[in-house]
Design a protein around this nucleic acid. Structure first.
Lengths: 129, 129
DNA sequence: CTTAAACATCGACAGACGTCAATATTCATG
DNA sequence: CATGAATATTGACGTCTGTCGATGTTTAAG
């Protein structure tokens, strides 16, 4: 593909072609209760919150964070969660794309870790810093 | 139905027949990242987060909180939100049932207010107190 | 009692979401 | 290269969700 015709300078890191991550959304706007949040910011924050607003994904975040070494592979999570392997992989992907987890592959295993500060960032937005 | 065979003492105010509110869920469990969250707690927290994880509802919470006097009626919210009156009423109901807003009717108007501490409570759960 | 205003509820519909089985991909090992 | 293991992707299915128009409910004012 041509590098010249594609890739216009993405506006500024906010609202690029990719979805906004948990870290980015945390440094975007005034606290929720001070002034009405902008429609665009509401959309971004909602997308990030949606990634967390699922029982399976909350448990995954918690299990990864609480796992020894601060990381866990899919094989560690499937059985205690009680969901199929494809479903667990799907949820992990959602959490990675939202910016809450990172994925690093070593051998055949994929290890997931919490992105430091991602939960705190979203929490700070809700609580009004 | 027999009262003896059915209705064992409901565990303790958590997971009653009604859904758990934002205030209740904040005093339920250890921080998300210390130990794996229980399945029931994950379900409750997800329900509360789901109520916030929508652009229109985030804007409603923000608009109500930022409105003069800390309260707003449906008529204040419909036009700036750009959604129909039934849709706004629906979203407000979701937020009330989740424990983020209260509703008080005066005359023909219904005034909505933020439940103090509700946002902070959920935020505290995410950030690990 | 009628009317009008503010809000809630209902019914319907399109789109998003969570889940799984089946299959594809990637990688270490023999 | 062939095999097996760990994970990702695909396709399908039922359910949930956001939205609206139409209608119901409640209250204040003539």
């Amino acid at each position: 593909m041509s590098a010249a015709t594609l890739s216009p300078p993405p506006s500024r890191g906010l609202l690029p072609l990719r979805d906004v991550t948990a870290a980015e959304v945390a440094a975007c706007c005034a606290p929720l209760v001070r002034e009405p949040i902008a429609a665009d910011d509401a959309e971004s924050l909602a997308r990030v919150l949606k990634a967390l607003a699922d029982p399976a994904r909350l448990r995954l975040v918690s299990m990864v964070a609480a796992h020894e070494g601060g990381e866990a592979c899919v094989c560690d999570l499937t059985e205690p969660l009680g969901l199929s392997q494809p479903t667990v992989s799907h949820h992990l992907k959602v959490l990675v794309e939202a910016g809450f987890l990172t994925r690093s592959k070593r051998g055949t295993w994929a290890y997931y870790r919490i992105v430091p500060g991602s939960l705190e960032g979203v929490a700070g937005l809700l609580a009004g810093v």
